[in-house]
Simulated assay, not measured.
Amino acid sequence: MSSILILVGTESGNAQMVGETLMDEFSAKGHDVDMAMDDATLDGLDLPARDVLLVVTSTHGLGELPDNIIPVHDALGEEKPDLSGLKYGVIALGDQTYSDTFCKAGKTMDALLAELGAHKVGERLEIDACTQPLPDEDALTWGEEWLAQLG
């Protein structure tokens, strides 16, 4: 079983709902799961010591990261830790009516983790608020497939 950290970036609570749903589901399957959201810091997350990271983030404004995940993103960009021992996945929430910035926060985190050497597992899940009012349903289906790919 894997030790999984779910890092949530949220403004309105939808990404938090997805993170909590997946935490419950993964825990029920025997995985050791923690969730970080409020007051998350890079030091507190200790990513180099982790096995698996799942980023669940919404996008707001003109493609910005949610306020609560900005400190982690900025610290990763500044400190550039070696994350070559980390597997990760990304669930990005957005609104396709903003086509230029759809799921941009998730794409931003995905690119940064790859740049730092982390190994992406599966494809990024992009959830459109216009077509999926209950994002946790899509996330559950994706999460089962993602867990199977972790090996």
Rank of each mutant, 00 (worst) to 15 (best):
E78W: 05
E137Q: 15
D24I: 07
D24N: 13
L76M: 12
L86H: 00
V56D: 02
I4Y: 02
S2K: 13
L42D: 07
H119N: 15
P81L: 13
S58H: 08
A49E: 15
A111H: 13
A105F: 02
M35A: 07
E64Y: 05
V55H: 00
A36G: 02
L54D: 00
S58I: 09
H73F: 15
L86W: 03
G30I: 14
L86N: 06
A114P: 00
M35Q: 11
L147Y: 08
D136H: 13
I69K: 01
E144L: 10
W146V: 02
H60V: 07
V33S: 07
V33D: 08
D51N: 12
L45S: 05
G106C: 09
D138Y: 06
A111W: 09
S27F: 06
T101L: 11
D34H: 07
K29H: 13
G143S: 11
A28D: 14
R124E: 04
V90A: 00
C130V: 15
G13K: 08
D24P: 03
G143L: 08
L150K: 03
D43W: 10
L113D: 02
D136R: 07
E20Y: 00
D32S: 14
D34K: 12
F102G: 01
P81E: 12
E79A: 14
M1T: 11
E145N: 12
R50W: 05
G89K: 04
V18S: 01
G61L: 10
D46L: 03
F26E: 07
S3R: 14
S84Y: 11
D24V: 08
T59H: 06
K120E: 09
M37K: 13
A129P: 05
D82S: 12
S99C: 03
G77A: 08
P48S: 06
P133L: 12
G30V: 15
D95A: 10
P66N: 06
S3Y: 00
V33A: 08
D43T: 15
R50H: 04
S27T: 15
G63F: 03
P135S: 08
Y88E: 05
P66A: 09
E11Y: 04
E145C: 03
D138R: 07
H31K: 06
F102T: 00
G9Y: 01
E11P: 01
M109N: 02
G61W: 04
V52N: 07
T141S: 12
K87C: 05
H119Q: 15
D74N: 12
D43A: 15
L22K: 06
T21G: 05
Q96A: 13
E25Y: 09
G9S: 08
L134G: 02
D46A: 15
D74K: 11
E20H: 06
C103Y: 00
T10Y: 04
S99W: 01
S3C: 01
G89Y: 02
L76D: 09
D51C: 03
I69C: 06
I70Y: 03
V72S: 03
G85R: 05
A111M: 13
R124T: 15
K80F: 10
T108Q: 14
Q149N: 11
E126Q: 15
G85S: 14
K29M: 15
L93D: 07
T21H: 03
L140T: 05
V90W: 01
D82W: 11
E64W: 06
H119G: 13
G106Y: 03
V18Y: 00
D39T: 05
A49C: 05
